[in-house]
Design a binder for these strands. Sequence first.
DNA 1: GTCTATAGGAAGATAGAC
DNA 2: GTCTATCTTCCTATAGAC
Lengths: 196, 196
Amino acid sequence: MPRLSADERREQLVEAAIRVMIRDGVAKTTTRAVVTEAAVPLGAFHYCFRSKEELLQSVIERITERTLSPVITHPEGTPYDVIRSTLHAYWDRVRERPAEHHVTYELTQYALRQPGLADLARKQYRHYLSINRAYLDSMARALGIRWTVDLPVLARHGLSVLDGLTLNWLIDRDDAEASAALDEYARYLSSVAVPS
Amino acid sequence: MPRLSADERREQLVEAAIRVMIRDGVAKTTTRAVVTEAAVPLGAFHYCFRSKEELLQSVIERITERTLSPVITHPEGTPYDVIRSTLHAYWDRVRERPAEHHVTYELTQYALRQPGLADLARKQYRHYLSINRAYLDSMARALGIRWTVDLPVLARHGLSVLDGLTLNWLIDRDDAEASAALDEYARYLSSVAVPS
DNA sequence: GTCTATAGGAAGATAGAC
DNA sequence: GTCTATCTTCCTATAGAC
């Protein structure tokens, strides 16, 4: 067993924990499963982290900061076309990595149940909301439009639609229905856009 | 310890499990926590249920069948008013019992990770979709309107909005923002309603 | 047919060896 | 400063007593 610094160990453990969660789910992500995955001695775990909860805190922070804003890929065409293709570009990322998205929902539920992590769940969520707001904002600028609905309201509503669709698709994997609902959301968004 | 029939024990255990889940979360709902809550001897557990998974199957079925369709409470006024007050009547139920709704999300995630229960999660979800469809249908009849959006698409989109809003509100408990987003969904719904 | 007693193992955490 | 060996607790499940 090579002896590494606590910082290097922490890094290995966080990344290993994420891999285990994606593979087996948050509930099965035990300290032992993590150290095995990372090929780190079990004892090193509680030398690097005060507790399992502290590891999970690092994991949530790491995953949250990795979440990317949707990218406006084809800024040409009608507002509906642009909105639709941007939403589908986001959706393709969900479809490519279902397990990773599944994990974010599990982590949120987990965090809500741990007194020490509930605040982190709120922070994570505020981050997603601000990403969504920024995305709607930059889309409006790219399209030369403004939204007729208050931005915070539109952002929360939109985040809900995407969260809900993702959750539902993770369960039934119905691509056709998810795509149709996403198109309907795109149609809605273009209906609340007016030239600015 | 009174000796009761296996059927009575099963009933006690399912209801006790639901109480424990609401109080402590699905992850902490161990067989021991359930038998303690039900005041049932530990050994009786595996006499009534082959495994913990079999208990959870019963719990999911029980909770799914308890889910009620939204009720159209004030079938007078503009379509927007009726839709809005119906959505808010549903929302009030969520706000009154946050823990119960939290549990349904946890159970779904849990079921998706258990090979033997994944199908049940899908079935549960189809049930929610059909409730939502029936609700949109009866609302259209009550209002004398028809929806300009394909019903299955509208139902999935609507279920996503409600699922997403619920999930988000369970995290930040922001009543004002949730209410505003719900109003926006009501406005959207009334915008896809035309006299029939 | 119902439940007591216990098996058998995996969990998170720590004292102290190197 | 890093990790080995071990403690304690809690888990699901079962064999067999009543």
